[in-house]
Computed example of a mutant assay.
Amino acid sequence: MNRRRFLAAAGLAGASVLAGCGSVENQSTRSPPLVENRPDATYYPTHSEGMKMIGTNQAGEYMVGLTYSYPHRFWTVTGTDTEQVTIRDADSVHLMASVWDPETAMVLPVESGVSIAISADGETVAEKQPWPMVSQNMGFHYGDNYQLDGEGVYEITVRVEGMSERRLGSFEGKFGSAGELTTNFEFARSARDDIAYTEHPDKQGNRAAVGLTNMEMMPTSQVPAPEELPGELLGTKKGSDEVYAATWLSGTDFLDSGQSYLAVSVRTPYNRVPLPMMTLDGTVDVGGETAFDDGLSPAVHPDLGYHYGGVVEATGDPTVTVETVAPSQTSRHEGYETAFLATPTLEF
């Protein structure tokens, strides 16, 4: 994906600035020192930031929500390596775009990408693609820090490309075309600086996570609990802190006679946020013979959520091996940047 830059946001409603942390204006361009000896796992971050709503609107078959917050650091992922993106002095905001299905309210990771064009007074301020990201309180979204040309009204155009992921069930035939919307955003430093900000000196570094923020106008990006997945649950296994839930389906509307479907749902611990952009291989043995040995394709289904799956030309009790060829290539907010980077092989 051509990952050009965009604006994204996230936060914890009702939080407050703690004494001794410096001014909120300074916090808009700085973050506390990172935790020393961070675990190779999900950990409680040094601080949390609130977010403000810009608005929601329909873009073709998609719904899109835009929010913003203070600029903050995050990490990009290439293979199993991460690289920190630091806050620049000129950064004005961190903006977030969330995409979901208007009928089921399921958040949709769109691997083909989202693009943003921002203009003011008829002049283009920026035209970029956001990074796909996971955050403890924001869940999955698209975002980046962004420099604006001062206070004023901006016009933001969001384009969501057609999904390349397999769409199953009632999603079949949907989301194949791009959608676009345009909205206005009035930026004022006083409004940004009024966003909640809190540090976590007593919790930072602990193996835990900040809870997902619930916003009235947008759904949260969670996959179903393992026991709520359709089909026969083959089990759950922990990889490099991420959780794999494997389920085996037969007799569903998207399968032919004699076929089964292996679905592997990979999520963060604590908050069940989906982890897109992984490369998984699967092997399925049924009745002592190999019935499937191939890559597991990214897919979305209203009841399965975002997952990795494959159609198996066999029915019966399976023995499944899942190999992680590459971990999730999504960028990470603080607290996730050291997790989900290994390549385990798991058996169900």
Rank of each mutant, 00 (worst) to 15 (best):
V322M: 01
Q58D: 11
A246L: 08
Y154M: 04
G176H: 12
R272E: 00
F74L: 09
W100M: 01
V266T: 01
L304H: 00
E199S: 11
E49F: 11
A314V: 00
Y70E: 00
A59I: 03
D89R: 14
K237V: 11
L7M: 13
V320Y: 06
P109N: 05
S260T: 00
G162S: 01
S31R: 13
Y68I: 04
V223L: 10
E25R: 14
P344S: 10
R4S: 13
M53D: 12
Q58M: 11
G113H: 05
T80M: 10
P132I: 03
M278K: 03
M63V: 09
M138S: 15
G11Y: 00
V17C: 05
E227F: 09
Y43E: 02
P302M: 04
P71E: 04
P276W: 10
G211V: 08
T78D: 12
L18I: 13
L148T: 00
Y43T: 05
Q129A: 15
L234E: 08
V322D: 00
A196I: 00
Y308E: 09
K203C: 06
V286A: 02
V134R: 07
L34Y: 09
M277Q: 12
H301A: 07
T330A: 15
G305A: 01
Q58K: 12
T343F: 10
E111T: 14
V24Q: 11
S28W: 07
G309C: 06
V85I: 15
S119Y: 03
E151T: 07
M277H: 08
V160D: 02
G65M: 05
E103S: 09
F175Y: 12
T29F: 14
V223P: 02
M278R: 15
P130K: 04
R207N: 13
E337D: 10
G335V: 03
Y44Q: 09
E242I: 07
E337V: 06
A120E: 12
Q204M: 14
E123K: 14
E228S: 15
P318C: 08
G176R: 15
G205C: 02
G11I: 01
L296P: 09
P39Y: 04
E227N: 12
V77M: 07
T279P: 03
T104K: 04
G310A: 08
